[in-house]
Computed example of a mutant assay.
Amino acid sequence: MSRSMSPSRRQLLLGAGAAALAASTVSGASAQSAGRDAMGLSGKSILITGASSGFGRLGAEHYARLGAKVFATMRNLPRPEADELRALAEDEGLDITVIEIDITSDEQVEAGIAEAEAAAGGALDILINNAGIAMSGPIEVQDLEATKLMFDTNVFGAQRMIRAALPAMRQAGRGQIFNVTSQLGRLIIPGLGQYSPTKFALEALSEQLAYETVDKGIDVTIIQPGGYPTEIWQSAADRSGALKERTRDPLLAAYPQLTAGMGQASNGGGSTDPMDVPRAIAEIIMMPAGQRPLRKPVHPAAKPQIPINEVSAQQQLAMLGNSGYGPWLRAVLER
């Protein structure tokens, strides 16, 4: 499994040429970095998916108020949520551009990224893959229509966005990609259908991407929220109800405890503050490149994924740390 390649960690993070340049201008770079931190997110271009509600809508406002140029994307334009966001931006003098992107559409993803890059004058600084859906019901009840929709949105949608945004980021030699997963991308609650499988997949995709882009100046961070009171709960109830209606009664009866509540809305977030997530993302953006964490659990109460994150990193390094892949792993995990 080893490879005949042994670049140093610094070479991986900066590249040989960039390392030489950094060595000759470290004082000036430090001063510039301090100035950027003082301005919050001023000068940063940020594209976020799923900005019609929840973490996406709150984030679009928050990053713009910190000075960022925000591209707030959502599907099915025109829609009231887009009009409301545009009106808010105009009232507060915020730099927010609403772009139509349905992340299940190759064409809309490519066109939306191109529009944002043209407006930003080049590569995006930050891509936030926030859009996602949920649907309850046991795995046997999850028909292929439900399964394909969940994976197309929660996994393939992020992959489409990543592949569209990465070429310009690589050419620029910089960038940050956030993928919003969940506590349930590390743990499983029975009866939540394909939600955890999709979030587990996005966790793995994100970690793999982090290793593969660390030597290109691109950071990848996985945001792992716990439960928050956002619109995802009602949307999940609507989709679960539709799934229940098209499911045969004998199959529903085979899992009575796990199907009885399908279609019923709940508030799994309690009284927690959804702004925790945009604040955490903004804080990570303002960290120096190359020092941003691979994973960030976000919740005011229990974070049961933390020990899983820790043992996962330990075992990755135990398996591959001394191989030719070691520099990539250490550059990502030893932060």
Rank of each mutant, 00 (worst) to 15 (best):
Leu258Asn: 02
Pro197Met: 07
Lys44Ile: 13
Arg330Val: 13
Ile96Thr: 03
Arg3Asn: 10
Pro274Ile: 10
Ser6Lys: 09
Glu231Gly: 11
Gln176Gly: 02
Ser30Leu: 15
Ala134Cys: 10
Gly137Arg: 00
Leu251Ile: 12
Ile177Gly: 11
Arg65Lys: 10
Leu13Gln: 12
Asp273Asn: 15
Arg65His: 05
Ala82Gln: 10
Gly132Thr: 06
Gly270Pro: 13
Gln315Trp: 00
Glu283Lys: 14
Ile222Ala: 08
Lys303Asp: 04
Gly17Gln: 06
Ile284Ala: 12
Phe71Asn: 00
Gly193Tyr: 01
Gln316Tyr: 06
Ser24Gly: 04
Glu245Trp: 00
Ala331Gly: 12
Arg36Ser: 15
Lys69Trp: 00
Asp91Arg: 15
Ala318Gln: 15
Ala114Gln: 07
Leu149Met: 15
Met135Val: 05
Val98Glu: 10
Arg79Asp: 04
Gly321Trp: 00
Pro304Met: 13
Gly59Gln: 03
Asp37Tyr: 06
Leu243Gln: 06
Phe200Met: 03
Val311Trp: 08
Leu127Pro: 09
Gln176Val: 14
Gly270Phe: 10
Pro307His: 03
Val298Arg: 04
Ser206Pro: 05
Gly226Met: 06
Val298Gln: 03
Thr272Asp: 07
Pro288Ala: 15
Arg330Gln: 13
Pro229Trp: 07
Glu245Pro: 00
Asp95His: 08
Thr230Leu: 07
Met286Lys: 15
Gly50Lys: 09
Leu77Tyr: 02
Ala236Glu: 06
Gly290Ala: 06
Ser6Ala: 12
Ala123Trp: 02
Gly324Tyr: 04
Ala254Lys: 14
Gly132Arg: 01
Gly326Pro: 08
Ile113Tyr: 13
Glu245Ala: 10
Asp37Ala: 14
Glu310Ser: 09
Val70Gln: 09
Thr73Leu: 03
Arg246Thr: 08
Met319Cys: 01
Pro300Cys: 13
Leu13Cys: 04
Ile133Leu: 15
Gln305Thr: 12
Gly28Phe: 05
Ala313Cys: 00
Gly321Cys: 04
Lys216Cys: 03
Ser8Phe: 05
Leu88Glu: 10
Leu252Cys: 05
Arg10Leu: 13
Glu283Asp: 15
Gln316Trp: 02
Gly185Pro: 08
Pro293Asn: 11
Asp276Asn: 12
Ala51Ser: 15
Gly241Gln: 01
Arg248Gly: 04
Lys244His: 06
Gly43Val: 12
Leu209Trp: 03
Ala60Pro: 07
Pro78Ile: 08
Arg9His: 13
Ala301Thr: 13
Ala172Trp: 08
Gly40Pro: 12
Asp95Pro: 01
Gln183Thr: 11
Ala318Ser: 13
Ser8Leu: 09
Gly157Ser: 08
Val180Lys: 04
Thr25Leu: 08
Tyr195Gln: 04
Arg170Val: 08
His299Ala: 15
Glu100Asn: 07
Arg295Val: 11
Pro288Ile: 14
Ala31Arg: 14
Glu117Asp: 10
Pro250Ser: 07
Ala22Gly: 11
Pro256Asp: 09
Leu251Ser: 13
Arg246Ser: 11
Ser271Gly: 05
Asn76Pro: 00
Ser182Gln: 03
Asn129Pro: 11
Asp95Glu: 14
Leu243Lys: 02
Ala318Trp: 02
Arg3Trp: 07
Phe200Val: 03
Glu245Asp: 10
Asp143Trp: 01
Ile126Cys: 09
Arg335Asp: 00
Gly217Ser: 11
Met286Tyr: 00
Gly67Ser: 15
